[in-house]
Computed example of a mutant assay.
Amino acid sequence: MKMESLTPNIMVKDVNATLNYYTSILDFKIVDTNPETGVFEWGYVQSGNVGFMFQEEKSLKAEYPEFQNINPGGALTFYIRVNHITQLYNNIKDKTTVIKPMNTTFYGTYEFAIKDLNGHILTFSETPSV
C-alpha cells in the first residue's frame, strides 16, 4: 500500500467567503463546489499539488456527528512548500494577516506565515537552491 495524497476537509462558517479568499488572495483555483452555484456547502480549491476542501459547519456536523460539540478552527498549521516565495510574500502581504514575516530559519529555509479569514495558519516555505 502507498498513500497517494492528503487533502484536508476543513470546517468553516462560510464556504463562499473562504473560496473567495483562497482564489483572490492566494491564487488557488476552484476545482469543485456543491452545489455548482449559489451558496456553497462544500468547495475544493487547488494550487499545484496543494489542495483544500472547505465544508460548511452545519453540513460537516451532519455528516460527522462526532463534531457536534466542536467549533471551526483547530490547533494546527498547514506547512506549504512553494517556489518563488519572495514573489508570493510581496503579492499577498498587504492583503492578509501576516503573523510571521519573511525570515530565514535556523535550518536554512525561507518562510513566512499568515492567518486566513477562518483563523487557520498557513506557513509557506522555500528551500534555497545551492
Rank of each mutant, 00 (worst) to 15 (best):
E4D: 14
T7R: 06
T7P: 03
T7W: 04
K13Q: 07
N16V: 08
A17V: 01
N20F: 11
S24C: 06
I25T: 06
I25D: 10
D27P: 10
I30L: 05
I30A: 09
V31M: 00
V31W: 00
T33Q: 05
T33H: 03
N34Y: 15
N34C: 10
F40R: 03
W42E: 13
W42R: 07
Y44N: 14
G48H: 11
N49Y: 01
V50M: 04
V50L: 10
F52E: 01
M53Y: 05
Q55P: 10
K61W: 01
E66C: 10
N71A: 15
P72E: 03
G73C: 07
G73R: 09
G74R: 11
T77I: 04
T77L: 00
Y79C: 03
V82N: 14
V82W: 14
N83G: 12
N83P: 08
I85A: 13
T86Y: 12
L88R: 14
Y89Q: 11
I92C: 13
K93D: 13
K93Y: 03
M102H: 09
N103L: 05
T105D: 01
A113Y: 06
A113F: 05
A113R: 12
K115W: 06
L117W: 10
N118D: 14
G119C: 13
I121A: 08
F124S: 15
S125V: 15
S125H: 15
E126D: 02
S129I: 14
